[in-house]
Simulated scan of single mutants.
Amino acid sequence: MDLLMSVRPGQGCTVLEVRGELDMATSRQLREALQRLVDSGDRQVVVDLAAVGFMDSSGLGALVVMFKALRDAGGRLCLAAVQPAVRNVLTVTSVDQVIDIYDSVPAAEADVRPTDAAGR
């Protein structure tokens, strides 16, 4: 199954809305979409996981790799609207101690820390 993703401007950030399952078959798509955002200069990225009901270790790996890439570029990746099964994976692996997780996209947007004058 393909991962459906859409990008939209948020309040001081870019929001990547993700739909589907994050697994070995789709994690590369997520990583590539996030890399395109980094390459285009986006530095504040909120990944909206409201429509993701499953994530395995490869999906987790894609998020961690891109979290580090954004951090190294002076930016920030955070997660929003994480469903219980996905949150469990983040908690069990302690990734929730490293990547900020918000109950909703508006809550994540409210905590954006602009990195430049444009707030990108």
Rank of each mutant, 00 (worst) to 15 (best):
V18S: 07
G75L: 08
D103N: 00
Q83G: 02
T26Y: 01
G75E: 06
A117R: 15
R19T: 13
A108E: 06
T115W: 12
M24F: 08
G10F: 12
P114N: 10
R120A: 15
R31K: 11
V47L: 01
D56I: 09
L37V: 11
R113F: 10
D116F: 01
V45P: 01
Q35Y: 07
R31C: 01
V64F: 03
M24A: 12
P84S: 02
L60K: 05
T91P: 02
Q97F: 06
V89F: 00
A81C: 08
V64C: 04
A80N: 05
A80S: 06
Q35K: 14
A62F: 07
Q44F: 07
R31Y: 03
Q29L: 05
D72K: 03
M1T: 06
S58I: 00
M1I: 04
R76L: 12
T14M: 09
S6W: 10
D116Q: 04
T115K: 14
Q35T: 13
P114V: 08
L77R: 04
C13Y: 06
V52E: 02
V105F: 00
I101Y: 02
F54Y: 12
T115G: 15
V64H: 07
L77H: 00
G61A: 14
G20K: 04
C78T: 00
G12L: 11
A85Q: 08
T14Y: 04
P114K: 10
L37Y: 03
C13N: 11
G61K: 14
L37Q: 07
E109Q: 10
I101V: 15
G74D: 15
N88R: 01
V18T: 05
G74H: 13
K68M: 11
F54Q: 03
N88F: 01
L49D: 05
T115D: 15
Q35A: 14
E109K: 05
A107P: 03
M55A: 05
C78L: 00
Q83W: 05
C78K: 01
A108V: 06
M5E: 13
V86L: 04
R43C: 10
A108S: 05
N88P: 00
Q29P: 05
C78P: 00
L77V: 02
G20P: 05
F54D: 02
E21F: 10
V64Y: 00
A85H: 14
Y102N: 15
T26L: 03
R19S: 13
D96N: 15
R43W: 11
R71M: 05
L37F: 09
I101K: 03
D56W: 07
D96H: 14
G59W: 03
D2Q: 14
P84C: 01
